[in-house]
Computed example of a mutant assay.
Amino acid sequence: METKFIFFSGKGGVGKTSMACTTAVRCADQGKKTLIVTTDPAANLSDVFEQEIGHNITLIQGTSNLFAMEIDPDKATEEYKERLLAPMKQLFLDEEMIHVAEEQISGPCTEEMASFDKFVDFMEDSEYEVIIFDTAPTGHTIRLLELPVDWSKHIEESAKGSGQTCMGPVSLIQENKQKFDAAISKLRDKTRTEFIFVMQPEQTSLDETLRASNELERLGIPTSKLIINGIIPSSEVVTPFFKKRHEMQHANIEKAMKTFLHIEIKTMELFDTELKGLDMFRLSGEKLFSGVEIK
Rank of each mutant, 00 (worst) to 15 (best):
T3V: 02
F5R: 07
F7V: 09
F8I: 04
S9Q: 05
G10Q: 04
G10W: 03
G13R: 02
V14K: 00
G15M: 00
K16C: 07
C27R: 13
D29V: 07
G31D: 10
G31Y: 05
K33E: 11
V37S: 01
T39V: 09
D40Y: 00
A43Q: 06
A43T: 03
L45W: 03
S46G: 13
F49E: 03
L59H: 02
L59W: 01
L59I: 01
Q61C: 01
Q61F: 00
G62K: 01
G62P: 10
N65K: 01
D72H: 07
D74K: 14
T77E: 11
E78G: 05
E79A: 15
E82A: 12
L85V: 05
P87F: 02
M88A: 14
F92M: 14
F92L: 14
L93G: 01
M97V: 11
I98L: 12
H99M: 08
V100C: 03
E103C: 07
E103I: 04
Q104N: 11
I105N: 13
I105H: 08
I105Y: 04
S106W: 10
P108T: 09
C109G: 11
C109V: 15
M113V: 12
K118S: 13
V120Q: 10
V120M: 12
D121T: 13
D125T: 09
S126D: 14
Y128H: 12
Y128N: 08
V130N: 13
P137E: 09
I142R: 03
L145I: 12
L147S: 08
P148L: 14
V149S: 12
V149D: 12
W151F: 15
S152Y: 06
E156P: 00
A159W: 00
S162V: 01
Q164V: 13
Q164P: 00
T165Y: 03
M167L: 15
G168W: 02
S171E: 14
Q174R: 13
Q178F: 07
A183R: 11
I184Y: 02
I184E: 06
R188I: 02
T191W: 06
F197Q: 01
M199H: 00
E202V: 03
T204R: 09
E208G: 11
E208K: 08
L210D: 05
R211C: 04
N214Y: 01
N214C: 02
G220P: 04
I221A: 07
P222L: 11
S224V: 05
S224C: 07
S224N: 10
I228Q: 06
N229A: 01
N229M: 00
I231D: 04
I231V: 06
S234M: 06
V237D: 07
V238I: 12
F241G: 01
K243G: 04
K243L: 09
K244G: 05
K244V: 05
K244M: 09
E247H: 09
M248E: 15
Q249A: 13
A251Q: 11
N252I: 15
I253Q: 02
A256D: 04
M257Y: 02
T259I: 04
T259G: 00
F260Q: 05
H262N: 15
E264L: 12
K266E: 07
L270I: 03
D272A: 10
L275V: 11
K276A: 10
D279S: 14
R282F: 00
L283S: 09
E286A: 13
K287R: 15
K287M: 10
F289C: 03
F289N: 03
F289T: 05
S290A: 08
G291M: 07
